[in-house]
Design a protein around this nucleic acid. Sequence first.
DNA 1: ACAAGTTGTATTATTTATAATACCAGATGC
DNA 2: GCATCTGGTATTATAAATAATACAACTTGT
Lengths: 267, 267
Amino acid sequence: MNGAAPSRLPEGAKAQRVYLSLRDQITGGALASGDSLPGEQRLAESFGVSRVTVRRALDALAGTGLIDRRAGSGTVVRDRGGAEMPVAMNLATLMPQLVEMGHSTTARLLAFSYGTAPEFVARSMELEADADIQIAIRVRSADDTPFSHLTTYVPANIARNYSEDDLANHPLFTLLERSGVEIAHAHQSVTATLAGPEVAEALNVAVGTALLSLKRVVRDVDGKGVEYLSALYRPDMFRLEMPLTRVGTGAGRHWEPAIGKDGEASE
Amino acid sequence: MNGAAPSRLPEGAKAQRVYLSLRDQITGGALASGDSLPGEQRLAESFGVSRVTVRRALDALAGTGLIDRRAGSGTVVRDRGGAEMPVAMNLATLMPQLVEMGHSTTARLLAFSYGTAPEFVARSMELEADADIQIAIRVRSADDTPFSHLTTYVPANIARNYSEDDLANHPLFTLLERSGVEIAHAHQSVTATLAGPEVAEALNVAVGTALLSLKRVVRDVDGKGVEYLSALYRPDMFRLEMPLTRVGTGAGRHWEPAIGKDGEASE
DNA sequence: ACAAGTTGTATTATTTATAATACCAGATGC
DNA sequence: GCATCTGGTATTATAAATAATACAACTTGT
């Protein structure tokens, strides 16, 4: 569909490409902790850029703590023991797992309105094209750091059963089941996308940051769509986890998710 | 791991970010065929850039045929009949689902070597730090369009049981089980990341494109790691899908993946 | 001590990307 | 017609990224 960037586009910041390449090599394991990097001059030559440009990339790597630089000695990959992701979610059960204790997540309501369903929502939920729905946009934070941007579409007749205030304080799941909806099954789809201006601001990241994108359609026992969720997650704050077990024998051998039994689902 | 781009880095080509963001909105369905885009002036304001910059991005979008622009009337998303996502994978069963018939996926081996395990691989697989492993990098394509970039780490003693040629022609799973490995369970983690130069070239996308990142550790019945997979997927070519059912009653009510029973797992 | 590497710093020039502005031409609704 | 959207074009100015160069300060090994 696209291929290389069309010719009219600027090449893109060279320093950023050097930065991304080195960062990938470090986080991807090609450069392990303690490894020495080639000298700045050599890096400049191998990337085909000037030393100043390499320097900017290294500055950025040092700023994020990935490398240590010592004048006269050289640049080495720093040993980063911890620095892991605070929030994870079990993709099978939709159960969030807060890896450290003391994490509390809070939701903030950014937008709340009623209107007609966008075409792609109506199609996914199998509603009439002009169906009335409620649209809510929320941002969820852990320890005052936002990690997810949630846009939910709920048919108006269901949404009338809870208030704007409920939405800011309870998972949508709770509200739906409290409203008498009998949730039966869901289908979710995971991809990646770039942060646009509004989302970037809400999640406190730069425009152009990679985000995890999850779309979920929830249906009731009659197969009617009761919720369409479009969620965007910061990859440095959030991960989807999924344990699997291989079961069966012979030709019937296949994978099955190892599921947790407890808890309450949330977005 | 990174979050907002470190402050010292150049912002990067703004035109390219506008281009990538709009492209994602179009291919991701947020902007459907026939939808009108906001005016160039409005786009410039919302992205925080000048109109010329927006213009360069729109030029690129028009160049790839994603939009139609008519002076006086406006810019609309072009109706591109097909060109949808050809490949999906069931996240629970690891079973790929080729949505259209006639799709054949082929693998190309980019790199193949033996060496000592990177620290993070050794830690994840619980190997000794200096364990010998095989590292292979493959690109998988559907209809000559690459959609996934796979880096696999396999302990050398297991990897010796199959050849470089096997690797290019068979899913790694098949080769492992053929080698007598008793695969028991796996753990996978899904995030998003940006395409670096090497991966971008291999996947035929622009540097800075959002990619889906999946890491999977496969263990045998003794709990020893037998495979570490780091996979990067083009979001416009590949999606992770997962159906869920809500089961149980009362307090024991929870989600469970609806799993397929057949087929062979692959990457 | 010395040479040869390294990073740190500074200066200058050049190129490129972006911004700000104005105006034209086509389309649309009143 | 007319006001007012829209994209198309051009000009100029400013800001930013990059390159080329030189040199200082520090480290290490001989």
